[in-house]
Amino acid sequence: MKFPANRPRLVLVVPSPASEGHTSETLLATLDKALTAGDIASVILDNAKADEASFQAFAALAVAKIQSSGAAAIVLNDTRTAGRVSADGVHIEGSRADIADAVERYTPKMIVGTGNVKERHTALEVGELQPDYMFFGKIGADSKAEAHPRNLSLAEWWAAMVEIPAIVQAGSKIDDLAACFATRAEFIALGAAVFSADKPEQVVADANRQLDEMSAADTEE
């Protein structure tokens, strides 16, 4: 599916199966609904506080669902599990040395992305390592309804001057998608907005509809 250049795509962030209020079963059921409700470019799997064996079992099922939908499956920090479940990539939240090592070892056979930068200088230093994308936000830190102003500001600055694609983390509701759209980031990440929703499929459908409308209106201006 081809989209206009000004139309960001969605990235899902799946909470860890060890996180409060979630289990592997509920997350997989929600993922099924979300993936069939509208366009999703990629999915990042959070593994916070999960033991390696149980997360790997969960990830194997999740990756199969994600890839069968046409999206890319990305695992947070755990390169070993990512390889074992044939994920498409890894998302590294760590030191500059960790990011550099992952880029050197796994590019181009896997997607290597990173994020959780809090100021411009660090972002530029990390950008010199040539990750496949920069995520403005921290995985799992979308508990507030609106996107964090710092993430919006950094994503807007980055998208205007750096070729490496930007993902901006939205809030726990999709009411502020216009602010995310305005950054010109190539992707918008939804986590709690989908996985804490009563009707996740409706959230994904509504988000895609809003982005279509914003893109069309922006083109007409």
Rank of each mutant, 00 (worst) to 15 (best):
E25W: 03
A73F: 09
S19R: 11
D39N: 12
V11N: 03
V103F: 07
V90G: 03
V112M: 03
R105K: 15
D142Y: 05
A50I: 10
V90S: 05
K118W: 14
L124H: 13
G38I: 03
D32T: 10
A141L: 02
V11E: 07
S69K: 10
T122V: 09
A72N: 12
A18F: 09
W157E: 08
D46G: 04
T30A: 09
A37K: 03
A59G: 03
E221G: 14
A159Y: 06
A73L: 07
G137C: 04
A71C: 06
G89D: 01
M161Q: 15
D176K: 01
D51W: 08
E163I: 12
S42E: 05
D198Q: 11
F135P: 03
L28K: 08
V63W: 06
G89M: 03
I167D: 00
M134S: 08
M1H: 13
T219N: 06
W158D: 04
E156A: 15
H148D: 15
A57R: 14
N6R: 04
T114H: 01
L190E: 00
F136W: 10
A37P: 07
L12R: 00
V63A: 02
F135V: 02
L10F: 02
P8T: 01
T114I: 08
A207V: 01
Q202P: 00
V103R: 12
D132Y: 06
S172Q: 02
D142V: 07
A155L: 09
G127C: 04
R96P: 12
R209H: 11
D142M: 03
G94L: 10
L45V: 08
H148K: 12
T107W: 05
G140C: 08
I44C: 02
E201H: 11
A189C: 08
V75Q: 09
A48K: 13
K2F: 11
R209V: 04
V103W: 11
L129V: 13
A72K: 15
A166M: 06
F195R: 00
I111S: 02
P108K: 07
M134I: 15
I167P: 02
T183Q: 06
L190H: 01
L61M: 12
M161C: 12
H148G: 10
N208M: 05
A170K: 00
V13A: 10
H148N: 15
E104P: 00
S69H: 05
A160N: 15
N77L: 06
L31E: 08
A50G: 10
G21N: 04
A170N: 09
E119M: 11
I164G: 07
R7Y: 02
A18R: 06
P15D: 01
A62S: 07
S215A: 15
A193R: 02
I167Y: 04
E163W: 05
E146T: 14
K33Y: 02
P17N: 04
G21V: 05
G113V: 09
A100W: 01
A34V: 02
A50V: 03
